[in-house]
Design a protein around this nucleic acid. Structure first.
Lengths: 360, 360
DNA sequence: CTGAAAGCGCTTACAG
DNA sequence: CTGAAAGCGCTTACAG
């Protein structure tokens, strides 16, 4: 019986299953580093997080062990423990082609990237156009993958918004979000005042039959810029003629189409205020084809002062909004919201830039 | 004393400290759902992951409990347990302005987004231009935040590459990565053959003094397209004249500058093969200004068949590469690499598209 | 079909 | 200054 027992034990010394794990050699963990450095893994963690109360020798030993083992922290474990991911999503909900064509977007992205970088946060860009993408994106964001979301050009009807809001994801939008003003913080240019100043400039220049091509009416920018237009007309006792108002979607093609409609419906127009530079740019060739000179017969003013404006023929008068300031404020505000502060909405002033399409 | 005691107990019924946690009301966990549904949390997990061996009643109870509690899974915990994040990074290392202007990029991105979506993977777009961004990005990727990386237009000298490779992050590049052919999988158009076919077309059309504006020589595409050019010349007994070769960076400005240099250094040229449509587009106005007619005096052929090509004046002959196929293969290959398969490099054929800038 | 338990790799009070 | 231990919220064999 004793021998039998002895025999039974033996097999455990020759494991049938190989000890090494799956093909992809396991990444070293904090424990491997600790063993290598001869300290506890709590100390390794302290060094990793640059916390105080660690002796210089320990720091050095850990540093060396880290390079020897090629250790990199597992971000998922870290995030699970801390509740923070260290990354921020820059979420695009427009069809992508509109955005990439839009120089504003590029400038905003650059500014946000810089502001985030200064705060040691990682920028993640997500595009949610198709329904599947939107679902997956919501799950991703609501799942805590990121600490907060920067929203670009949100449309008010978008179901994505309510999902994000009810998941209590910290959000800051570029432009007020219609219907969510109380729940979603935002940073926006003073679109209404900017549009008004543009139209008042046209009135001062003698124009009396001013048309407008608006932005989408489910965005705050689209609505506010139209308000600014009517504000100016009303303030100067000019009628607001529906025939002189057409709706666009910010993009060039909609600007060209809008201009054609205007020429047909309101052929006596003497100025056009387009709610974006892209739409304003598209009016130029249409006006030329129709035999109207800019600014001689028709003055044109855009909005954005995008890179495009100055390069057009003629160079475009437009309303400038300080995108660098906007991106900076968006990030600052988002960190506040993440820290638990109540939503806020910030408005930054615009300025009128006059060029040949409607000189002073 | 007894009364005293009674008094002492009372306060515990009116807790001084509020029971609710920090401002950000704690998210419900799998345990909350389990309690609500009256099952173990292992069962909740099974339902969540759509695994078998769960009774219909349990499934229903859990589903209801999930909506009642507003539960969303904590992705970090899930990733820590599974070792998978369910997301893929689309990494851009070019200065951003170049990419957003490039229609190819947009098409590629769209294709990748679709292919990823089909596989239930989330697309994360990351831009690493500045040194800080690059460091943060490497840390993010090496930290296991994503399951794999799709690399666009990588330049061979980029230190990012070696970091990613040594961190054993699964990578698939668009275009071979010079110096990393064995370690980084790639999907690329057959740049060399494509370029050769373009130049052979020019030769067949009677051109004998063919110049070229190349792409960057630290990218495989740049090198291969130049090789294709010399291949064709050599095969037809034509000399390769250094004066007829200038280097560009894919972008329009470099194409315009390159064309000016060529007109000076090799004024007798009768054709130009530009390694990108953007550069080819930029040659057109320069040639016109110099009084050369296209295609009468100088034929022009580009590469990419970007949206741009057909809209130019004259419409541009160019080499088309099937970006939809490339994006699809990149994603498929990446899933293979993630699964542990060895690196591979895939080449897809191109086709010549003839338009007025160099008709048949 | 279901539950108890171990484990993923960290961070962070809590005691020394 | 440092270590042992609990806990973050899941998944997944392992027993029933």
């Amino acid at each position: 019986m004793t021998t039998q027992r002895g025999r039974e034990v033996a097999p455990t010394m020759i494991p049938a299953v190989p000890t090494s794990p799956a093909p992809g050699r396991k990444r070293p963990t904090i424990r491997d580093v600790a063993r290598e450095a001869g300290v506890s893994y709590a100390t390794v963690s302290r060094v990793l997080n640059g916390r105080e109360w660690v002796s210089p020798e320990a720091v050095r030993a850990v540093r060396e062990a880290i390079t020897r083992t090629g250790y990199t922290a597992n971000q998922h474990a870290r995030s699970l423990a801390t509740g923070r991911s260290g990354s921020i999503a820059f979420l695009l909900t427009e069809p992508q082609h509109l955005l990439f064509e839009d120089p504003n977007f590029s400038v905003l992205l650059r500014g946000v990237a810089q502001a985030l970088s200064d705060r040691e946060l990682t920028l993640i860009l997500m595009i949610a156009s198709t329904p599947e993408e939107r679902n997956r994106t919501v799950a991703y964001l609501a799942g805590g993958h990121v600490d907060g979301v920067l929203l670009v050009s949100p449309h008010s009807g978008d179901p994505l918004l309510s999902h994000l809001v009810s998941a209590e994801v910290p959000i800051v939008a570029c432009g007020r979000v219609l219907g969510y003003e109380q729940q979603i913080s935002s940073v926006a240019a003073d679109d209404r005042a900017g549009a008004r100043s543009a139209v008042e400039h046209l009135i001062a220049a003698g124009c009396r039959r001013i048309a407008t091509i608006t932005g989408p009416q489910d965005t705050a920018g689209g609505v506010d810029r139209l308000h600014g237009y009517t504000d100016a007309l009303t303030a100067h006792g000019l009628p607001v003629e529906p025939a002189r108002i057409v709706h666009g979607d910010w993009g060039r093609p909609s600007g060209a189409a809008g201009m054609r409609v205007l020429l047909e419906r309101a052929p006596d127009l003497d100025a056009v205020f387009a709610a974006s530079d892209a739409m304003a740019a598209a009016t130029l060739p249409v006006l030329r084809e129709a035999g109207r000179e800019v600014p001689g017969d028709v003055r044109v003013v855009g909005f954005d002062d995008s890179g495009l404006a100055a390069t057009l023929d003629p160079p475009l008068s437009t309303v400038r909004h300080p995108l660098d300031r906007i991106s900076e404020e968006m990030v600052r505000l988002l960190t506040d919201v993440i820290a638990g502060r109540t939503p806020l909405s910030i408005t930054v002033p615009t300025s009128l830039v006059l060029r040949d399409s409607s000189p002073a």
